[in-house]
């Protein structure tokens, strides 16, 4: 199998996803509205109620809007990962997933390409969101926007791989509502996206521990530190490990002889 074959297939899959994203304006708008509502409505309302002590990577007191911005970047990627997962279940029901899976390329590569396509879209969304926040004076150092790129890629890969894994378990589109209730909401609210860990610890040790081990928390912290030009090594290792585990499980799930596909009766 030639390298050019892989390259062309990758671009074919990524190009298709980007084309879909660009042509489906409502998807683009709705992906942005959610975090913007959190930023401009929720954060504004809670600014007075939630006092934040100085904690890394911040070197001074910050507004609540500044604190939740990295969390909302993570939120965009979390929802995008689940949206990709939803579209894979849809594609499987509609049959177009079959064309991808019967291509003469290793299945892990096809899934990784699909994942990269989704990550590309989510990173675009995050930067548009950050640009709007910047225009409203919620700004990080300019270098931070560059450092955030690899962090966003890794967090996007991890959350996308989770979505991919979930899509291998879900047979029907109707079952997807459960993902919202049992995956997205707990992951988001039991994380450091909206409040720092020490704040959670004040309320509940158990919630603090859950949030600490939640891979989404680590992804958010990775983005948060990167936006301020710093590397959170623990978050980097944790997010990378979570990505490796989710991706391996997703590849296993889509393996026709071993995973869920064999038990469910195909793609």
């Amino acid at each position: 199998m030639r390298v050019t074959h892989y390259w062309r297939a990758l671009w074919g899959i990524v190009g298709r996803e980007l084309w879909r994203f660009v042509t489906q304006r409502e998807r683009f708008v709705s992906a942005l509205v959610r975090p913007l509502v959190w930023l401009f409505v929720f954060a504004a309302g809670f600014r007075a109620a939630l006092g934040l002590a100085i904690s890394p990577p911040y070197e001074t007191y910050i507004l609540y809007e500044v604190y939740i911005t990295p969390g909302l970047c993570g939120m965009i990627q979390l929802f995008n990962g689940m949206q990709s997962s939803l579209s894979m279940v849809y594609d499987r029901e509609m049959g177009s997933m079959r064309i991808l899976l019967v291509s003469p390329l290793p299945r892990w590569f096809l899934l990784l390409s699909k994942l990269l396509a989704g990550v590309g879209v989510s990173v675009l969304q995050v930067y548009v969101f950050l640009a709007i926040a910047w225009a409203d004076d919620i700004q990080a150092p300019w270098q931070g926007y560059l450092w955030a790129m690899p962090a966003l890629l890794l967090s996007g890969l991890m959350l996308g791989a989770l979505g991919l894994l979930l899509s291998s378990f879900i047979k029907q589109l109707e079952n997807f509502a459960g993902v919202m209730n049992f995956v997205i909401f707990p992951m988001f609210f039991l994380s450091t996206a909206l409040y720092p860990l020490w704040k959670l610890k004040e309320s509940s040790i158990l919630l603090h521990q859950i949030a600490q081990y939640n891979p989404f928390s680590q992804a958010v912290e990775l983005i948060r530190f990167a936006l301020y030009g710093q590397l959170n090594l623990h978050a980097l290792i944790y997010t990378s490990a979570a990505f490796a585990v989710f991706m391996a499980a997703a590849i296993f799930g889509y393996n026709p002889s071993k995973g869920m596909m064999s038990r469910k009766g195909g793609a």
Binding site: M1, R2, T4, H5, Y6, R8, A9, W11, G12, I13, G15, R16, W19, R20, T23, M94, G95, S96, R98, I99, L100, V102, S103, P104, L105
Partner: peptide
């Protein structure tokens, strides 16, 4: 292969569907 159920992307043009398939098969 032609599956029993249509597996084309309904929102893409005929050409784009075929280009996509060509890419999956490594055709320039």
């Amino acid at each position: 292969i032609v599956f029993q159920q249509t597996t084309l992307d309904m929102d893409m043009s005929v050409m784009d569907n075929l280009y996509y398939h060509a890419a999956l098969h490594g055709i320039g």
